[in-house]
Design a protein around this nucleic acid. Structure first.
Length: 519
RNA sequence: CGGAGUGUGGCUCAGUCUGGUAGAGCACCGCGUUCGGGACGCGGGGGUCGCAGGUUCAAAUCCUGCCACUCCGACCA
């Protein structure tokens, strides 16, 4: 028996994990590289996952009292110049539009020198500036606050190195932007978004994360505080899966977002911004994929239950098809995880064995195979994608048809939970909290390079107290970590009451910080 | 942009050292036999061998330049 995935995942094996990831993206029909450097084509199955993310998250964003709007793709260059840190942070990766017309010169189509823009336009890398500009006109009085806007959009950041879903030059995301009268309120809004992301990631993506505050060196350009959710991939690396920023009044100052308070004073707003992107899909792949392909949590699977009829070009086919159609209809009338079930009858003219494995690779949570025996006996045979095999053997379950339909919501909920539990157990088992000195951290992570790559042990993260140094002291810490390919991930929101000495300096610790390799 | 590697049908690769009619497996199309665990037989379609020059009677193969991709580093959601 040959598996479609020629590349085998070996957890913790750094040399094959990237190959395994790419194999899944391809075999699961998620996306492909496009002719455009650094940009991908998101295929229907991959885009279907993104649509699921949009649908579920959009509802939660609106529950936060945030409305959707849309702002321009092009941002005047001068807008970026207003916030020094911000422009410095993004300057190196901006796509710039300089002309508005092409002309054939010497037989070559090129930008018409006569059609140069007076002011270059930036293809948005993020929209703080253009939205801030609108906010400055929209906000007059304290009665206009808080102002909470979200947009679903594409953004462009000219990246050196790209990886499908994880980092592409153009990517899809949502960006929330809020303006408030007080810093406390803006910070609360920042943390509310962070909590929304944490809950979404865990309950919808079945991807456990650790929410916390980014250290100073990892802050969003121009932000006062940056918070993130960090997920652990199956190679032990951390993936920053979402960020939320408290921007203080720096953008309000830069863009003159002011309001008149109830006492008549002109005050600067406090703003926040927060976002998640198509990177989440990369996280889902690296969290739930296995050697047979992708495994999708039912909440984001474009199709949760796929029925593959076993057709043989004989007269019994009619009964099987009729049985399958009625089954899909009844399943779609059911609700699971708070939404109508998404079941599909795959009646494509292909060998049923091929179709079955096609859905296995794509990660459909439940795959039903219906043959004449099932149709005659009024039963269904199905596979759970989360526990596909028993040893090397594919595990098939049987149930009476009506019972299966009635239990489908529970089954999907169970699969959702099982995927989460599995990932949660891996996360918890791989955060070391017993390393109290930098030497121990260095030894723990440093061992990887000394070992044979094929047998290198899985390394997760270290959680240890530190003294939260700033400025040059922080830079020194970052440099020491960099030598080990390590980064500071975040200081988890959930902190103990007392702390041991700082793992880097031995000084009194003030909080615990997560350390790990990262994407 | 630095280091390493790779570019040959849709996918995975052999062939390159030693120049001599472009190959295999999978996928695809047709026919037949099969189908409840990634079937088999026979027949077929599909590649200007990453691009551009050069050497040669002859280039996937040798030389020069360029490009793309992958991995590592710098940058980052």
């Amino acid at each position: 028996m040959q598996r479609a995935l020629s590349v085998s995942r070996m957890t913790g094996n750094r040399s094959t994990f990237p190959d395994w990831y790419q194999a899944i993206v391809r075999e699961a029909d998620m996306a492909e590289v496009s002719p455009v450097r650094g940009s991908m084509i998101i295929k229907p199955w991959g885009y279907g996952v993104w649509e699921r993310i949009q649908q579920v998250m959009d509802r939660r964003i609106k529950e936060m009292g945030v409305d959707n709007a849309y702002f321009p793709l092009f941002i005047p260059l001068s807008f970026f110049a207003k916030e020094a840190e911000h422009v410095e942070g993004f300057a190196k990766e901006m796509a710039v539009v300089t002309h508005h017309r092409l002309k054939s010169i010497d037989g070559k189509l090129q930008p018409d020198p006569e059609a140069k823009l007076e002011e270059p336009l930036i293809v948005r890398p993020t929209s703080e500036t253009i939205i801030g500009d609108a906010f400055s006109r929209w906000v007059k009085s304290y009665r206009d606050l808080p102002l909470k806007i979200n947009q679903w959009a594409n953004v462009v950041r000219w990246e050196m190195r790209t990886r499908l879903f994880l980092r592409t030059s153009e990517f899809l995301w949502q960006e929330g932007h809020t303006a408030h009268a007080s810093g406390e309120e803006a910070l609360a809004s920042t943390l509310e978004a962070l909590e929304m992301y944490r809950a979404f990631s865990e309950s919808v993506l079945a991807m456990p994360v650790i929410a916390g505050e980014k250290p100073e060196n990892e802050r969003f350009p121009g932000a006062a505080n940056t918070f993130s959710i960090e997920a652990m991939m199956q190679d032990g690396k951390a993936l920053q899966a979402g960020t939320s920023h408290y921007l203080g009044t720096s953008f309000a100052h830069a863009q003159n977002i002011r309001y008149q308070s109830d006492s008549g004073e002109m005050e600067f707003c406090h703003t926040s911004s927060w976002g998640v992107s198509t990177r989440l899909i990369g996280g889902v792949i690296m969290t739930h994929g296995d050697d047979d392909g992708l495994r999708l949590p039912p909440a984001i699977a474009p199709r949760q239950i796929v029925v593959v009829p076993m057709l043989r070009g004989k007269e019994e086919d009619a009964a099987v098809l009729a049985f399958a159609k009625a089954l899909v209809k009844d399943l779609n009338a059911q609700f699971a995880l708070g939404e109508p079930i998404r079941a599909l009858l795959d009646d494509r003219d292909q060998k049923s064995a091929d179709k079955r494995w096609n859905w296995v690779r794509r990660g459909a949570p439940v795959i039903i195979e219906l043959g004449p025996r099932d149709a005659a006996g009024g039963q269904v045979s199905y596979m759970r994608r989360d526990v596909l095999r028993d040893g090397d053997k594919v595990k098939s379950h049987q149930a009476p048809r009506d019972e299966f339909v009635a239990n489908a919501p529970a089954l999907l909920a169970q699969i959702q939970q099982a995927l989460y539990d599995e990932a949660k157990a891996r996360l918890e088992a791989n955060i070391r909290t017993d390393l109290t000195a930098f030497d121990q951290v260095a030894e723990y992570f440093g061992q990887v390079s000394d070992e044979d790559e094929e047998t290198a042990a899985f390394k997760g993260w270290v959680r240890a107290p530190w003294s939260r140094p700033t400025g040059e002291a922080l830079e020194a810490v970052v440099e020491r970590l960099k030598a080990l390919k390590l980064t500071l991930r975040n200081a988890p929101t959930d902190q103990p009451a007392t702390f041991g000495p700082c793992v880097f300096t031995g000084q009194p610790g003030v909080e615990e910080i997560l350390i790990g390799r990262a994407y």
